[in-house]
Lab assay of single mutants.
Amino acid sequence: KKIKIDLKKGPEGLGFTVVTRDSSIHGPGPIFVKNILPKGAAIKDGRLQSGDRILEVNGRDVTGRTQEELVAMLRSTKQGETASLVIAR
Rank of each mutant, 00 (worst) to 15 (best):
Q67A: 04
D22L: 14
R21W: 14
V62P: 04
R65E: 06
G51H: 07
V57I: 11
I25G: 09
G51A: 07
A83V: 13
G51N: 13
G46R: 11
E69K: 12
R53W: 09
E68Y: 04
K1G: 01
V57T: 04
A41W: 04
D52A: 00
K8V: 05
K2L: 02
D52P: 00
R21K: 12
N58V: 01
R65W: 05
K78G: 11
L74E: 05
T17F: 03
K4G: 08
S76E: 14
I54E: 00
I54F: 07
D61V: 10
M73R: 05
I25L: 09
G64P: 07
A83G: 04
S23D: 05
E81W: 04
F32K: 05
K39N: 12
P30F: 08
Q67P: 04
V86H: 08
N35Y: 09
I36T: 03
G51T: 03
L74D: 08
D6S: 14
V62N: 03
P28C: 11
I54N: 00
N35E: 14
S23C: 07
E69N: 06
A41I: 09
I5V: 09
K2C: 03
T82S: 13
I3T: 03
Q79L: 08
L85H: 01
G29Y: 07
P30Q: 04
R75K: 01
G29T: 08
K44S: 12
I31W: 13
T63P: 04
R89G: 04
L74G: 03
S24F: 08
G10N: 15
T17M: 06
G13S: 07
T20I: 05
F32I: 13
I43W: 04
A88R: 11
N35H: 13
P38L: 10
V57S: 02
G64T: 05
R60H: 10
L14P: 02
A41L: 03
G51P: 00
S24D: 11
L55E: 12
K8E: 11
G64K: 08
S23G: 06
L48A: 01
D6H: 13
E81R: 13
R65A: 06
K8C: 04
A42I: 01
L55V: 08
V33R: 01
T20E: 15
R60T: 04
R21E: 09
R75T: 01
I36R: 01
R65G: 06
K9H: 15
Q67E: 14
L85K: 01
D22C: 09
G29C: 09
G51C: 08
T20H: 07
T82M: 13
P38G: 12
R53Y: 09
L55Y: 11
K4L: 14
D45T: 03
E69V: 05
A42W: 01
R47I: 04
G80T: 12
V71F: 05
T66I: 06
